[in-house]
Every structure is written in C-alpha cells, then in structure tokens.
Design a protein around this nucleic acid. Sequence first.
DNA 1: CTGATGTAAACTGTTAACAGTTTGCCTTCG
DNA 2: CGAAGGCAAACTGTTAACAGTTTACATCAG
Lengths: 236, 236
Amino acid sequence: MLEAPATAPGSTHQGPIDIVRTQSLTTLVQRELERLILAGDVKPGERINEQHVAQRLRVSRGPVREALRGLERAGLVEARVNRGVYVREVSVEQALEIYEMRGLITGFACARLAAASTADQRGELAGLVTQMERAASAGDQALYYAINLAFHDKLMQFAGNMRAKAMYDALVKESHLCRRRSLFSPRNMGESNAEHAAILDAIRRGDAETARKVGEEHIVGGRRRFLDVVGSTAGT
Amino acid sequence: MLEAPATAPGSTHQGPIDIVRTQSLTTLVQRELERLILAGDVKPGERINEQHVAQRLRVSRGPVREALRGLERAGLVEARVNRGVYVREVSVEQALEIYEMRGLITGFACARLAAASTADQRGELAGLVTQMERAASAGDQALYYAINLAFHDKLMQFAGNMRAKAMYDALVKESHLCRRRSLFSPRNMGESNAEHAAILDAIRRGDAETARKVGEEHIVGGRRRFLDVVGSTAGT
DNA sequence: CTGATGTAAACTGTTAACAGTTTGCCTTCG
DNA sequence: CGAAGGCAAACTGTTAACAGTTTACATCAG
C-alpha cells in the first residue's frame, strides 16, 4: 500500500486527486489518508512515506506534510523527528479509556434525549432498532455494524450538543487504531440490540437517569465484548 | 500584533525561534501561535498572515502552514480557501456546549476519585482548596484563577484517564476563544471554592454519586456565572 | 458625488530544489 | 565467520520561487 505510482504509463486515468480544485489539495490528501488509515489499508505502527504518498496522489510533498500535521493533532498518526510519520498504535489500556469516554458521552446523549426529544426523532431511532433486529436475525454482521453506526450517530446528533458529537466521532475514529477489535457475533448482536431497545424505552418514558445509565452501560457492554476478544487472543 | 519584523536592524536579538533545533520548526511555530491565541494577543475573528508570522519568527512559510493545519484540527483557527486562516470565534451557544462537556468530564473524574484515590492525592487537593481560600480572602483574582486551574488539572490527572484529561484540556483551550468570559468576583471566588470543598468532601467519603453530581454542578455554576456576564453585557 | 470597472499589489496554494539526518549495505579487519 | 566502520542511497526538514486568486485602490462614467 502507498507504494508505486499505481497508474500504468499511457493510462488516461489521472489519479484520485485531479478534481476541480474547489478545495485545497491538503484537504483532499488529508481525507484520503484518513480514509486509508481508518479502512486499515495502512496499519497501526506502519510508517507513512511522504514521497510515496505525494507521487501516488500526484501532488508535491507540501500538501502531504500539511495533511499529516492535521492527522497528528487528530491523534491518528505520530511524528518522530527526522524519522517520519507513523500510524498511531492504540494500546489496550488506551482503548479501555476510550470506551469509558464513549460511554460517558453516550449516557449524556441518552439522558438529554429522554428530557427533550421529538416524536420524529424517537421514530427514526425505533426504525433503526427494527432494522438491526432484522440484520441480527439474518446474521448479517456487516449490515448490523452499519446500522449500529447510524443509530449511535443519530443519537448523538439528536442530543443537540455538537461538541459532544464531535468528541464522540473522534473517539470512534481513534478506537479503530487498536488492532484488537470486537466484532458482532450473532449472540452479541442480539445482546447489543436489546440494549438499544432499553435505551429507546427509557427515552420514550422520559426517564433521563435510567436512559443515562443504560446508555453508558451499553458502551460498557461493548467494552466487555472487546475485552473478551483481547483475552481470548494472546500474542501481539 | 504579528506585524513587523520586530527586531530593529543591528539588533543582536535573533528572535524567539533560533534555539538549537532538537524539535522541528513546525512544532515551535505551533506552540508560539497557540500561546499568542490563548493569551489573547491575536483575537478571535482576526486573520493570521502567513508571511508576517514567518518573518517575525525568522522562518519560511512552510512550517507556518503546517503549524496552522495542526491548530485548525485543534479547533483554534479556521481556514477559508484562498482567503487565509482566522482565529476561531466561539459563539455563546458553543461556549454553553463546552461548559456542558466540561461538567460531564469533571463529574466523571470526581466520581472516579471518590471510588479510588490515595491519601496523598486527597491531601494535595485539600492543600489547593486551602490556598484558594486564602486567595479568595485576599481578593486576589489572578492567584485564585491560577490555583483553580491547578486544582482542576490535578483532579483530571488523578482520575487516571488520560483521554479524559486530554479532552478536558482541549475544551478549556477552546473556551478561551469566546470573547465573553466570566471572571472571579470576590463573591464568585467564595462560591466557587465552597463547591471545591464539597467535591473534596464527597471524594473523602467515597460517595461517587454525590461527587459526580457536585463536580458536574460546579462547572454548571461556572456556566451560570458566565451567563450572568453575557446577559449583563449587551452588544458584540 | 456615487457607483461601476479595471488594474496592481498582496496573499494564499503549490511546486521544486537544497541541506542535513538516518538507514541500510558493503567492505574490511579481527 | 562475525563485528565494526564507512560509504551511499533514501528520506525528512526547510527554503525559495512560481501560479492563481483575492482585495484594495484609483480611475472614469453617470
């Protein structure tokens, strides 16, 4: 990954970054690098070669360096002086801290929704829970994962604190940098979605304190499922 | 600010950024710009001129641009395409969101300390409360402000979640970008420190739930004092 | 006197070249 | 045969120059 110039000589394909420049190249490079990192195409601990990136995206090193500085502040990469930029590795301890913070913020959002939410919002969340139920029954992990993401996204969005949502999103991104990741086994999907239903129920009843509690515990549940994976998989 | 080359011709003074380069220029520029912004030397809404910064710090535009990209991701500046980088303006609404998040995280830290803290840690916090009491009695706002900062810093540090502390620090920095700021009037200092004492008391008793509540309410108190200032000061 | 238009200066976005450090490989000596 | 030292390639850090856009000012028409 991120090695050769990719396009063969004679190819008319101009590379991914030759769009009309309504945005700066730095922004486009940053987005592309973030995508590669979060998709796991470049793995934690791996080094990012400025020249290779520049050649691959048909850009000079300037915008690449700027993009990398942004990603550094976002916590996605680490820069070692005179030694290059590396994709950050998130340890298990750090991952647990991240789970705690995600739980805290999710609990906040749930409490907020219990105190103030529209029927439309509750309906949309209910619809997603139903969809997850179907995905879980079908055993479709990828689908469940996607809808689960949307559910939590809406939850944060409806809570009406943009700063909370931004922090939550940053935490989710960061958690992708931990090699050990928990997946949704069929049993986990059912368990996870039951918690979603409990959150929604508390929100509907306007019970802020319970909503906060089950929201927080839902993420703690994710943390437990994560620990199961870590525990059962020894080695690096 | 950030205008002329500063040093007069013939001056032997080499400018702030001619230290032995054990760190990258970008890092030093970033630190200096962050300092200028947080100290209020460059104000929210003001434009940052790359060339002027570069000249003033005796550096080329490259490192300056990289530093600005980092500050952008940190939320301290905003970049408008082909139009330059501006110090971010935090609206009153955004400031209130930030207060909410600071309260949430502070409450978390207090609960955590109530559940698990050493005698040394509690002693250190108690010492700071005592110092603040003296500062409040003397009516020394600057001193109270400084110790208050240290108290909250220790609180987050002792809570043992580095991610929480990092998020809290980022929020505090961001809140500096709101023009309307609450100061510590003599009455406010006493009120604020009484809340500190209540926090410490709950921590000592090991009452996590109360600690969380008073910790959160302490920041909400800050938010209320902030709203008083906003309300009593009309206009831009 | 006011508003539109055109021109020049200023500034941002980008690229390419230069300097110094790191790293890997090869040679050479024990 | 193994290890230490040196040389060369590769890569990062930095700078300077170029290109295109924005902005401010001056000029001119109404």
